[in-house]
Design a binder for these strands. Sequence first.
DNA 1: TAGAATTGCGTTAACGATAACGCAAATGAG
DNA 2: CTCATTTGCGTTATCGTTAACGCAATTCTA
Lengths: 352, 352
Amino acid sequence: MATIKDIAKAAGVSIGTVDRIIHNRGRFSEETARRVRELMNEMEYSPNIHARGLKKTRKYSFTAVIPEVWQDAGYWSIVAEGIKRASSELSTICDDIQLFHFDRYSAESCIDVLSKIFLLKTDGLLIAPVFPENVVKILSEADVPYIFIDTDVPDISRKISFIGQDSFQSGVLSGKLMSLMIGRNKNSGNRMIIVEPPGSDFHLKSRIDGFTVYLNENVPELDIYHLKISSDKEPEYHNALKTCLSGINGLPAGIFAANSSVYHVASYLKQTGEPYRSVPVIGYDLIPGRESLIEDETINFILTQQPEQQAYRGIMMLYDSIVLNKTVNKNVIVPLNIITRENLHTFGENFG
Amino acid sequence: MATIKDIAKAAGVSIGTVDRIIHNRGRFSEETARRVRELMNEMEYSPNIHARGLKKTRKYSFTAVIPEVWQDAGYWSIVAEGIKRASSELSTICDDIQLFHFDRYSAESCIDVLSKIFLLKTDGLLIAPVFPENVVKILSEADVPYIFIDTDVPDISRKISFIGQDSFQSGVLSGKLMSLMIGRNKNSGNRMIIVEPPGSDFHLKSRIDGFTVYLNENVPELDIYHLKISSDKEPEYHNALKTCLSGINGLPAGIFAANSSVYHVASYLKQTGEPYRSVPVIGYDLIPGRESLIEDETINFILTQQPEQQAYRGIMMLYDSIVLNKTVNKNVIVPLNIITRENLHTFGENFG
DNA sequence: TAGAATTGCGTTAACGATAACGCAAATGAG
DNA sequence: CTCATTTGCGTTATCGTTAACGCAATTCTA
């Protein structure tokens, strides 16, 4: 591979000049620069990561901003894991990656955290813009490149990329899986329950939309009922379900919960035992410690976008883009994984 | 972090001595060595990977041995992609990774290739032991560490790891998905067709076993028929299917093909049009250019273990183990992905 | 016991990128 | 026209590790 020395020799200048051109540190003529840049392309110059890492006068500093780890039933703790894995892999190149949390139900706490961050110096930001308007406003005033994770926000100034899921499509997928399961139990009626956790999360809505669209088109006879939950706590789900289920003749055709609240639903069904335990249930996210509800098929299908990997890739994209100066994909849509009893154990530590 | 210099100063010797002690290159007294080693522990010395990477006169050389890329309907070309991706990521650390191919139906060609390889010098091997006995024999005589990919072989001398799938379990998963689909079409009978491609591939058999076990237990009334194919070519599949299907009253309950031959099956069903096109079909592997058969639901479910990622990880594990001296997992089981029309497009370039 | 070999160290030049420093020549201001 | 600044470049020390080299002092061999 070509080194800076090779380029310098080929261009008939010194390595100092080439370095100044590469880093735009001035003190070179445009003509020389053109020649050098051409040669860099021709000779496929790529900086030696080790030499650069060794010379580290300046370490890079990245920052990640996500909701509190305990929110969304622990979903964000998995995201945090991915960030930490990336962090330790980059430890020789970057100072460790700063991780900040905010309350996912309070715009204020989010703004608070963000303003604190801009007092620090950071070279790149990975942020879950749960409150898009606020985040956009603050970011547009700051001079830092960023990657959005989980929730996208339309193009703004220094955005590098978005990495996340296609929520609507995942809802459609849930609809399909649900349609495969329903109608197999003679005691089941036509009522399909969609559990609606509090808060107006964008993903939640898109997933429900996708789910509804699929079922309306493919199983029009279903009677879709939206069970609204007032507070995001397990007993609340249990109460709401109890009332709802007692109002139905026989069993519901199925239950869909568009996020990790599916585990609250399942814990209720499991506790009531048969026949409710056999109701088709589909939900989201693999939460450590909750696998048994999938193993015993109280939950039939879980959809996930492997948040650990997603976060890991997010940080790595920051690194690729900012440190290595690579061009990264503007839009990375992560795979929608279908998890059920039979493949649950293959989604272990190895692949997050 | 402590450097070799710090250790040297603390021990009152020169860096040359410390280096000789670290690498056991002789020319030091045991007393000095003890002192230095103690200090290395105390001061938590860890070699700077960049300095090491920069200096390395000796680059590492890895070798991968897999079947021809066009075999198994192009499956191995995806594996090759993953190897290439890893190769370019490691380009500053390793010489490029040598990739060799053999004929997956000829033990001789495999032996041929392997013996050629041992004329070269290589630091590590990633190999798909399609012919376990031959591979084991050759490897046990060679002095190279290796990782098996795709097919496992019981512990032998210098094996680092196995990375692959749980074939039986993936068959079970297929069985479950099949059971969800069958019995929805009034014209369908009880006949379940298992397509058996020629050759006695271990994965194939395990998958079929898993599939059969699940269905026997959960849908015992099914009449399982094994459709043996004599030659691994598309027309052969078409002919066999034609004969088989004409011998059934109505439609089969479903068709299962335990590898990428499912695309041959699907192309036949598509060409015959309704009602055969609506028969439930499950198979394996995402093959570039064949997506349309999933998009139009001729194939209902495809299982895959993301061979691109699998191969990439295989190479990275070689690197971790041999270059970085890390301990790697002895057995890496890759996730079983379920792919269907609704999530097909999320398994794109980004995630192989 | 002379000479050879070995032991136990220190010194130093790479590896490639970086950035401070120095120094002419060109350009500017007064 | 003079002195100051800017432009355009080359030189060099540095990061931490490695391995070749050199050089005494000691031990071995004939």
